[in-house]
């Protein structure tokens, strides 16, 4: 109730046009992406995202986040329209603490948090771990990253704009900690790719 008073609802972007079906399609897209690392899933008919979020990035949070899943947004978005949008449509709590967040939305690949700062799960409950949702400038299935692991028949290629050696190191360290770890979803406009903690990544020179 407190929330409604401080928001100017007339300026808030609408969420899903058809919440039940749209959330289902987004979830299946995410499931598909995580079950097939290296595959790029296109989500259709997405609502316009608030400033600072991508269309798929925003939609998958609409589909998956709620009062049980604190979301971390970069400080610049948390108190801006993106933050209001997620709080209003998902009913989720926005947290300033990375260690609390179920969903973490870094500003970019260059701003990936340190693995140690994220919820890694517990040895008995590795599922209690963060999911990162990162908007990137480009995604393509042919490219420098060679992916192997569950969900991939032999090897998959992926090209991610803005990918750095630090990103490769992040994924390798994440893989090394299995079954603890975090799971990554990369979004680019309406496109989506998944990098679960099981993925093994090599980068061609």
């Amino acid at each position: 109730m407190h929330l409604v008073r401080e928001l100017d609802l007339s300026r808030l972007q609408p969420g899903f046009a058809e919440p039940v079906g749209d959330a289902q399609r987004c979830f299946r897209g995410v499931l598909d992406a995580l079950a097939h690392p290296g595959t790029i899933v296109e989500l259709a008919d997405l609502p316009a995202p608030p400033p600072g979020l991508g269309a798929a990035q925003s939609a998958l949070l609409l589909a998956l986040a709620d009062q049980d899943t604190p979301v971390w947004l970069p400080p610049g978005l948390r108190d801006a329209e993106a933050g209001h949008y997620l709080r209003f449509h998902c009913g989720c709590r926005l947290t300033a603490s990375l260690a609390d967040a179920h969903f973490v939305v870094p500003a970019s690949l260059a701003a990936l948090p340190a693995l140690d700062d994220l919820r890694p799960g517990e040895p008995e409950f590795p599922d209690r771990s963060a999911t990162l949702v990162v908007e990137v400038a480009g995604l393509a299935t042919v490219g420098a990253l060679r992916l192997r692991g569950p969900g991939i028949e032999t090897e998959a290629g992926l090209s991610v704009a803005g990918w750095t050696a630090d990103c490769t190191a992040f994924l390798r360290e994440n893989r090394r900690r299995f079954p603890l770890g975090v799971d990554l979803l990369l979004t680019c406009g309406a496109s989506l790719a998944g990098l679960p903690r099981t993925v093994r990544v090599d980068r061609e020179a």
């Binding site: 959330a23 589909a63 079954p179």
Partner: peptide, 27 residues
């Protein structure tokens, strides 16, 4: 009843569990 019987909050909870299940095969 909602589409597919479960309410949306329950579906979200199960969907999140399924995504973690896929990321941690066999767990």
């Amino acid at each position: 009843y909602n589409f597919a019987y479960l309410d949306e909050q329950t579906k979200r909870m199960i969907r999140r569990a399924l995504l973690k299940a896929v990321a941690i095969p066999g767990y």
